[in-house]
Design a protein around this nucleic acid. Structure first.
Lengths: 136, 136
DNA sequence: CATCATCCGTAGCCATTGCTACATTTATAC
DNA sequence: GTATAAATGTAGCAATGGCTACGGATGATG
């Protein structure tokens, strides 16, 4: 009486790389925000933003530079590449939609902000469209 | 003209432990499902379920046993402890609510299943309540 | 231009979650 | 009961993201 195990679809296939992608999304979004807020984005700004040490930031920035999402030189500010900027805009737009969606759903501001930051990475295009539609 | 960097609230404070908790939630839920489906849950069942090697599963099972969520002995099936069972029920209920919510929102079944698996871990009690309310 | 605080990089540690390769145990078949 | 297949464990490697400790670079201030 053997039953086939139904493998979970996409989300569980590559947990580690998924997390890395989420990190990338968070970082480009943060860089964009910080540049808007104060003109430039330093490693320490990101460290404070994410509540991690500057070492962690610096390593991740290095990786994202290898992925052509960020650009920086030693002791210089962090900037978005064209690719990073494009991603950041998409991420931020999606974030704002999720936030507005949760708010309209009746979630208070504080919780909507917290949950939207976690949820946003898992909202596919179909779900995003449905949220947009709900907002209209 | 220094601006204070607004630190992001909870979600970014402890990325690693958050991911570990998500893993715990996924595993207890999977064990519960697999036990329901085929009477027992083996390491290899979980490996197929999550599309990872049995080695990865076996190490995680060991950790979750240390956390008193699972119980097993070498070469024996994996079972939920009372604590694990309680968590699994909560997780599954939340999962089903998120899935039903996305479906009612107009997302097709396939995408609702994919996205709900990612979203569920980030749905706080307030957001969950709002989703439940929407379903009524 | 020297000093000093701030910023950033490097070294090196740990935990988590992937993996392959190999060993061992358990169960099945003959 | 023995051989074989399947399941599980163990060893050891890599990538990612945490950290502390330390040292070098930058920039502001006198």
């Amino acid at each position: 009486m053997k039953k086939k195990i139904k493998a979970r679809s996409v989300p569980f296939s590559q947990t580690r790389s998924r997390h890395a992608s989420e990190t990338a999304e968070d970082y480009v979004e943060a860089v964009m925000e910080l540049v808007e807020e104060k003109g430039e984005c330093r490693v320490l700004d990101l460290a404070r933003y994410f509540n991690v040490s500057h070492v962690t930031v610096s390593r991740i920035v290095k990786r994202l530079q290898d992925e052509d999402l960020l650009y920086t030189k030693p002791y210089k500010p962090v900037e978005l590449t064209a690719k990073g900027s494009k991603l950041a805009k998409r991420v931020k737009e999606r974030h704002l939609i999720v936030l507005a969606f949760l708010t309209k759903l009746g979630v208070d501001k504080a919780n909507a902000e917290i949950d939207s930051e976690g949820i946003e990475h898992h909202v596919g295009s179909k779900t995003l469209a449905a949220m947009k539609n709900f907002l209209k």
